[in-house]
Nucleic acid binder design. Structure first.
Lengths: 202, 202
DNA sequence: CGAAAAACTCGACAGCGCGTCGACTACTTG
DNA sequence: CAAGTAGTCGACGCGCTGTCGAGTTTTTCG
């Protein structure tokens, strides 16, 4: 817990300066290589003053993540609330996510890496994931009931695999946006692709 | 580089003791929470003596990984060298990988997490991944040429996505082996599942 | 205005984990 | 038994973290 209370004052500027410095540094190097000294120096305060504003480096990450809150859900509404292989909706959802990874890749990667061992980050990650997985699982259930999708893995398992794939693919990609079309294809196959098992002989 | 040269002697026992301690600790807690003191204590030597055997904690990881060398390739031969949706071969490949993740999950996860920022681990990871991706990509190319698989993402991209999915799914799973069947289905869909786009109206 | 309170700042300190160095002991091999 | 090599260890310095207490500013309000 930061000791800071309320009011628009000089301290607010410093807090923003820390956040801005963090964003700026994350544009250049991974989270693990950023030190509290650098954050403090960037905000023109001493290292110990940093602790007046944030409890740790990860608290800064949490704050940064908080600012990203809405962005993840918004563009997926159409896809998650729809039904059937709605290609444009899926592409929109993936494109938005890709852009986020392009712009905030190091922040997201750092947060993911630090999540085990940092309860606040773990909760953030779990909440994000669960929201997506649950809605996607519901969509799968709907599609199957409507005869739009073939049977297969339990909906929440399939949804979790899709979520894993997105994260792994974007986290590892040099150019997330270049992956969007391929991910669209692959996710559609995972959801709707019932392939015909060929007869076992020529 | 460790300063150690050759010969079967007392030191060999200590080296093994360190490795054993590492394995034992990895059964209880993640790599990041293991300290060199613990490793040394487990082998009944002082912390500074540890450095006579290994240069760092990650050097121990590398050694541990080295011991796992063959296990990854072996059981995938049938699947990677075959063609078409060979379900048993694919299942065998995935089952072996799942077992490895069950037994060595924390080691693998730790190695993966530490890979950026540790060249030897990064090289190990890259080599492993590239081998798999390349062989799988070749398989995809073959299948497509033979008319066994539909067109889709570039073979090496699709192969990389499948590799990512495996790693992410197993790394995050409480029970890797319980995922095998679902992964079989999903991978087959990614490779062979050409779904029929439904007509755009009811 | 001026005094108490709050917001804010900082240097000094203690802790932990890492990796190194140099001196010491114990084997082994001619 | 001498000399070299293998193995051991305590002490040190480093970098980063987080805390404490004492200081300075800024706000609040009687």
């Amino acid at each position: 817990m930061s000791q800071r209370r309320r009011g628009p004052s000089k301290g607010d500027l410093r807090e923003r300066a820390i956040l801005d410095t963090a964003r700026e540094l994350l544009g250049r190097k991974p989270l693990a290589e950023i030190t509290i000294d650098e954050l403090a120096a960037g905000a023109q305060i001493s290292r110990s003053s940093f602790y007046f504003y944030f409890d740790s480096k990860l608290a800064v990450v949490v704050a940064l993540l908080h600012g990203l809150a809405g962005e993840l859900g918004r563009d997926s509404e159409a896809w998650l609330d729809g039904s059937g292989p709605d290609v444009p909706a899926l592409r929109q959802s993936l494109a938005a996510l890709a852009t986020l990874w392009r712009d905030q890749g190091r922040l997201l990667a750092g947060a993911l890496a630090a999540a085990p061992g940092c309860p606040p980050l773990a909760r953030w990650r779990a909440a994000l994931r669960e929201t997506h997985v649950e809605r996607l699982a519901a969509r799968i259930t709907r599609d199957r009931a409507a005869g739009l999708a073939p049977d297969g893995p339990a909906p929440h398992v399939l949804a979790a695999l899709i979520d894993d794939l997105r994260t792994a693919a974007f986290a590892g990609a040099a150019d997330p946006e270049g992956l969007v079309d391929d991910l669209v294809t692959v996710e559609l196959r995972m959801l709707y692709g019932d392939f015909a098992v060929p007869h076992s002989h020529g």
